[in-house]
Each structure stands twice: as structure tokens, then as C-alpha cells.
Amino acid sequence: MTDLASAGLRPARARAIPRGSDPGTAGDVRRGQAILVVLAGAVRGRLGPWLVPLALLAAWQAAARAGLIAPSVLPAPTDVLAAGWKLILNAQLLDNIAVSARRAFSGFLVGGSLAFALGLANGLSRLSERLTDTTIQMLRNIPNLALIPLVILWFGIEEDAKLFLTSLGVFFPIYINTFHGVRTVDPQLVEMGRSYGMGRFDLFRRIILPGALPSIFVGVRYALGIMWLTLIVAETIAANSGIGYMAMNAREFMLVDVVVLAILIYALLGKLADSAVRVLERLCLAWHPAFQRS
């Protein structure tokens, strides 16, 4: 793209010379403008969201290569990549990613489905809400990471501990948003459905669930963030496998590049999960004006 831009610049530079201005400066200004135009195009295009992360990466690489950052503090991205490649080759990295991903999603599945079921139940039934909502709201206000000492006493550092913590973390955002979604379904639509003879099941499947879906998706996206957060902390404190464990282990041996690699992988996995939900959102909420392409 830069080649194209500078190719387009030549006539402009030629015109600038007779005017008597310094050809070099004028050319630089033009070239700067052209780069700006290309950049603006990129921002609008598909690459737009990735520009800032890529620029940060480039700046980091440059600073590391120039010796501005000591390798013991923050190794260059290329070194981190090299460390990653080495770990891929001895199968450690992929194993650890698989272990972490499995933990994350089993926690999400267990906590998420419990939260979804309770959110629906409490949204649909006043009795169920009276019985359980207060309890859930009290539990919600306990920071789940504060439970780690207790969880270690209960479950040790086995899989159960991680499953418990991630399930708990995922539970509340999904519960609250499902509950809220069901409660805010347009009562006029429900009345319409009743007047057209929909039974309880039809009413739920055709009006209440689709009406609550946008709110449920908000809960899922929020829950995914909490899922990674909880898992990272759980893995760094008490684990013998997984990316968090890999990072802690690397710290013991002063392998800064592996620690940084672990952090970057968490960022990528988080982004991946979020993107997957956004795709799902686009598919399920195609009717929603907010998701329609103009």
C-alpha cells in the first residue's frame, strides 16, 4: 500500500518544484498526507480494530531492539515468539492451552447453564424469585477470588477447584442478565401471544426467549471475561498444568519470555471467545436493528 501511495506522489512532487519551495519538504508533507489517507482507509477497513495492537507491538519491538527495555524486564516480541515456537515444538504449549481451555469452558458450561436455568426460573416465576433471588444477590457480592483459600482447603489444587471458581465467576453475569432479559420482555407482545392462543410453552419459545436473548448475550460476553480472569488467578495460585501454571513455573526459572507469552495467549484466547460470541450474536439477533447492515 505504501508503494502505491508513493507512486501516486510523483506528479505532485514534480509540480512542487517550480513553485520554488524546498522539494524535499514538500514531498515529505505530501508523503505524510498520503500515508494518512492510507491509514484512514485501513481504520475504516477490516484491519481497523487491529491497528492499535499492531502499532503497540511494533513500538515494543523497536524499543526492545534499541535496548530501551532490558530483556530481563520485557523481552522483544520476536523473542517471545521464539520461546513460543520452542514450546510448541516440545508440545508443552499446546498441551497447556488445551488444559486451560478445557477448564475455562467446562466452568463456563456448568456455571452458565445453572445461571441460565435459574435466571429463567426467577424471571418467569415470582415464587422462585422470592425464594432464591435474595440469596443469590448476597453470594454475588462476595468476591469469588476471596474464596480461593477456602476452595483450596475444600478441593485441594485439583480440577474441581478450578471448575468451582470459574463456574462461580461465570454464574452471576449470566444469571442477572437472563433474569433481566426475561423480565423486560414487552408485555404487549406477551398479551398478543395469549390472545392468539399461544400456550405456555409456545409463549416461552416464540416470545419470551427471543425477547430475552439480546440481554442474555450481554451476560455471556461479560461472563467470558470473568471466566478467563478467574481461571488465570486460580491457575497461578494453585495448579500443576495450564497456562497460568506455565507462567508461574517460568517465573521460578526467570524465563521472562515465557511469562510474557502466557499473558499474550490469555489476551488472544479472551479475544477469540469474545469474537465467537459476536458471530453467534450476529446470527441469532439478525432481526435486531442494531445488527442489521444498512
Binding site: 407482545l189 398479551e191 432481526w287 435486531h288
Partner: peptide, 11 residues
């Protein structure tokens, strides 16, 4: 028939 159309937006 109501004053509002009350159509299901997802259908």
C-alpha cells in the same frame, strides 16, 4: 387488532 402493531421483531 391493537393500537400498536405488536409484531414479533424476531420473526
Amino acid at each position: 387488532m391493537f393500537q400498536e402493531p405488536r409484531l414479533l421483531p424476531w420473526a
